[in-house]
Computed example of a mutant assay.
Amino acid sequence: MTQATADLTDADHTQGEPREFLTFTLGNEEYGIDILCVQEIRGYDGVTRLPGAPAHIKGVVNIRGTIVPVVDLRIRFQLGNATYDALTVMVVLNVGDRIVGVVVDSVSDVAALAEDQIRPNPDLEGAVDPRFVTGIGTLDGRMLILLDIEGLMASAEMGLAGSEAA
């Protein structure tokens, strides 16, 4: 078993059982995050901007009485200016002990990937820190960049209160 596949195997999944990922786009690339982290998918509404927050933290929203920070992954990954339109969505995540919203260009679908469809993360430098890429998924000719969304949201670079040092 490769390291990327080992990273994707946890107590919630038995070996050989496909893992499900919510797939979404940022620019021209498709990404995947573990479906178990997804609480809900919402249309993108305006947020309350926080003074002094990093550019990728769009602000906060009130979701059923919970104040939720909202991160724009396009800005965080330095993929150019974000355009907010009818397809822009916010994926509400339950990561660690917090709820976080992430803005993405569009949500594609839920993809089930078997172990043999997940390749190790290539050793490349880029906008996405390789520490937060668990592998590359292949599905019907598509390539999905599989993110460790929990690690990313907990990283000090994210700038969210309560983030751990990376």
Rank of each mutant, 00 (worst) to 15 (best):
D109P: 15
K58W: 04
A112P: 15
P54V: 02
E150Q: 07
L152P: 02
D105V: 07
G43R: 15
T88N: 05
L73R: 05
T83I: 06
G43W: 02
T66H: 13
L146Q: 08
D123K: 15
V91S: 13
M90G: 10
L139V: 12
P54K: 06
L147E: 10
G141P: 00
A114G: 15
G80M: 05
E125K: 13
V102G: 04
G43N: 14
D123W: 15
D105R: 02
P51L: 00
P69F: 01
R119P: 08
V133R: 01
L113E: 15
M143R: 10
I149E: 13
V68G: 01
D97P: 14
D105M: 02
I99V: 11
L152W: 01
N81C: 04
I57Y: 05
L79R: 10
I63Y: 09
I63D: 08
Q117A: 12
R76H: 12
D97H: 12
V107L: 00
I67K: 03
E125M: 09
N81G: 14
T66C: 03
D105T: 11
R74Q: 07
G137M: 00
R74D: 01
G59R: 00
R64F: 03
D109M: 02
A55P: 15
L113G: 08
L144N: 08
Y84D: 11
D116A: 08
P130T: 15
V89N: 15
G65K: 01
G65L: 03
V91Q: 11
S106F: 04
I67D: 05
P51I: 00
P130E: 15
S108D: 14
D105P: 01
V100W: 04
A82S: 13
L79W: 13
T88R: 08
L73G: 02
I118F: 06
